[in-house]
Amino acid sequence: MFVLLAAAALAAPLLVPHPEHAGTATDSSARLLAPSATYWMGTDNLGRDVFSRVVYGLRTGPAIAVLVVSSAVVVGTAVGLVAGYFGGWVDEILMRLTDVFLAVPALLLALALAAVLPRGVVGLTIALALTWWPWYARLVRGEAASVAGRRHVEACRALGLGHCRIMLRHVLPGTTTPLLVQASTDIGGVILVASGLSFLGLGAQAPTADWGLMVQESQNHFATHWWVGTFPGLAIMGVAALSYLTGDALRDRLDPRSTSPRGRMPRRRPGTTEAG
């Protein structure tokens, strides 16, 4: 599904019937038309095709989420890896800095940063990236501290290998599984927060095709023209749910300590007995 969504975002000009409606083009003669064979998801208050804008929204919300999570993973991994590997005063300084960011509620911090930074997609991406990295620092720090105390890492130190080489080749690989699971789950969370900030006017600005902005623009017409905000909202919910389900599936696949999705013991092959 992620591959299909990425392909749809890249091929949006070829897939949608009205690509011009993703920009500044409007059609006053087609305002607030209900879904039909011509307009699959209806039109908004400016006569723009909702379906075309929802598909083009794949280039905004999910793209912001991927950039935010990627940036947070890079920064958080670097901080957590150094803190967990060296320990001592280095760990104390880096983790106390992380605690400063974690002490403020994430949404409140994102709101404050988005209000200070220039309005738009770039400012929103920077605000969310600055908010999201502490969780990865904490996650990687715990895993790195565990791996750094193992015998093969101590053997590398005894052989005189450099710290950078040990961290990158022997400590970092031990953190990839929880990082991958957390990152895949966080994409949905970032999409929800980014859409919320766009709804409040602190994210993407008109005429950008953004799902949160589309829901905000539809609030005055929702009672009488439900389709204007319903389809962007379903897109937000669908991609966020896909992200959470992907994270759960990766956890079941990659973490041998995890249980089945129903919370019971790991599945047995058909035909095997309890003793087998």
Rank of each mutant, 00 (worst) to 15 (best):
V54S: 05
S70K: 05
L192W: 01
L250A: 02
G123E: 06
V190W: 00
R257N: 10
L107I: 05
L128C: 12
A194N: 04
T175W: 02
N220G: 12
G160K: 15
R251Q: 13
A83C: 11
P35Y: 06
R264A: 11
R157M: 10
A106S: 13
H163A: 15
D255K: 00
G201C: 09
L14W: 14
V74Q: 03
G162A: 10
G61E: 07
R119G: 13
G123M: 03
G47K: 04
G276L: 12
L81S: 09
I64E: 06
G229E: 00
G160E: 11
G271W: 01
A114L: 07
G84V: 13
Y56R: 05
P19M: 07
R269Q: 12
T272L: 02
G80M: 02
S243T: 01
T273C: 09
S195P: 10
D91C: 03
G271N: 09
H221D: 06
W40F: 13
L81G: 07
A206H: 09
P105K: 09
A127E: 06
S260I: 07
G162V: 15
P207I: 03
A206K: 08
L4R: 11
V90A: 14
E143R: 00
P105F: 14
L197E: 05
T176K: 00
L234M: 12
A240T: 12
L111N: 08
T272C: 00
L14P: 03
Q219D: 14
P256V: 03
L200Q: 02
G276P: 03
F231K: 01
A63G: 02
G188A: 05
R165Y: 05
I93V: 15
S146M: 07
G80E: 11
G196A: 10
V75Q: 08
A240S: 13
L102W: 09
I64K: 05
Y39H: 15
R269E: 10
R157A: 14
Y244K: 15
A275N: 09
L197W: 02
W211C: 10
T176V: 14
H152E: 11
S29M: 14
W211I: 07
A7S: 09
M41W: 06
L179K: 02
L172K: 00
T38S: 11
L130K: 08
T208F: 15
V122Q: 11
R157P: 15
A37I: 14
A137F: 03
G247P: 03
V16W: 09
L159C: 12
P17R: 10
A145I: 08
P118V: 10
